[in-house]
């Protein structure tokens, strides 16, 4: 019971903290580090250094040695000066997101960040990382900029928001740690993890069999052709006939007869929603690899048959976001 209480308390504190941070350092595409959002404290080594100073001060007192006093104060002054130097190493740096490309769940998402100096100072050894990711270190020349890439494991499909970035610097002496939490409003689209196995459904049928909603295809109208007996009546161009032209059929998708349809229904055997999405993802990739045309039908989305990388990405995007609250995806780049 106390454990749950503690967990609740921690949750409360963390959410408070997040709210406070969100107010103080609101998410933005571009963040300039200033005294508003840079914090500074002695590092572990800095506390060690302060202990050293205390030892020297005691030696100075007990030996009544003015030079030991002088050196103690010199190093103490150095510590104070280092506060300013360490702060200056972060302040005046502008960070912004420089894009990311989609990954599959379980892979490492790569985020590119752009660091730009806007204070005509050099920024050396600036470390950037997420709480559970690797740290990257950058150096920005005066007036220059530098791009670094950070990687994070994406575990779930959908929009992946890595949260607040930690930016920190120990430069120049390592005695102090200046840091900031910034939210660059970064997001990366995570495709579902492709299922490990699962053959393409046999009934991934040809052309028309897949048509469930006849009107949905009206946008993909591509032209007319001479009526052939057997054409569906609803495709007959009655209007042209009324104008006195010969009977024609409205042709919707030129290649419809050579394309496959992947339907949500076909994945029924896979299990839960995630497994079904994974299975569909696997099929999409297989069909793309085989350079076949395919369409995708999800309960709320329908993607007309097509091929190529763009088409595949559209299909994967639809799968990634399927069934997730729309609000999460809004505002994403």
């Amino acid at each position: 019971m106390s454990a749950s209480l503690r967990a609740r308390l921690r949750g409360l504190i963390e959410s408070r903290w997040e709210r406070w941070l969100a107010r103080r350092v609101p998410p933005a595409r571009e963040v300039l580090l200033t005294q508003r959002n840079v914090y500074i404290m002695p590092s572990a080594q800095g506390y060690g250094f302060l202990c050293l100073l205390l030892a020297m001060l005691l030696a100075g007192m007990n030996y009544e040695n003015n030079l030991v006093f002088a050196f103690t104060f010199l190093l103490g002054g150095l510590f104070v000066v280092a506060v300013l130097h360490t702060y200056a190493n972060l302040a005046g740096l502008t960070l912004s997101g420089a894009g990311s490309s989609p990954v599959f769940a379980g892979e490492r998402a790569a985020f590119s960040l752009c660091l730009r100096d806007s204070a005509a100072r050099c920024h050396d050894a600036v470390g950037i990382w997420w709480r559970d990711g690797d740290e990257a270190e950058a150096r920005v020349a005066p007036g220059g900029e530098s791009t670094i890439t950070l990687h994070l494991y994406a575990t779930r499909r959908g929009w992946f928001r890595p949260g607040r970035l930690r930016v920190r610097s120990h430069y120049p002496l390592g005695l102090l740690r200046a840091w900031s939490w910034i939210d660059l409003d970064l997001a990366c689209l995570v495709y579902p993890r492709p299922a490990a196995s699962g053959a393409l459904p046999v009934e991934a049928g040809r052309g028309d069999e897949g048509f469930a909603t006849p009107d949905a295809g009206s946008e993909d109208f591509s032209g007319f052709r001479r009526y052939v007996p057997g054409d569906p009546l609803r495709h007959v161009a009655w209007r042209t006939l009324a104008k006195g032209q010969p009977l024609q059929t409205r042709e919707y998708i030129a290649y419809a007869d050579r394309s496959l349809w992947l339907d949500w229904q076909q994945s029924e055997g896979a299990g839960g929603v995630e497994e079904r999405v994974s299975l569909l993802c696997r099929w999409v990739l297989e069909l793309h690899r085989a350079q076949l045309q395919f369409g995708l039908i999800l309960p709320d989305v329908r993607i007309e048959p097509g091929s190529g990388d763009t088409h595949r990405d559209r299909a994967l995007t639809a799968l990634s976001l399927f069934g997730l609250p729309a609000a999460v995806g809004a505002g994403a780049a």
């Binding site: 005691l58 030696a59 007192m61 007990n62 030996y63 009544e64 003015n66 006093f69 002088a70 104060f73 010199l74 190093l75 103490g76 002054g77 150095l78 104070v80 000066v81 280092a82 130097h85 120049p172 002496l173």
Partner: peptide
Amino acid sequence: KMLAQALPLMLMLFVVFPRIAPLWSM
């Protein structure tokens, strides 16, 4: 450069820091 910047602070502390009698013998 940093030590030079620390020098004025050192001077100030050197002048004003109280010279206490030894706390224990060394």
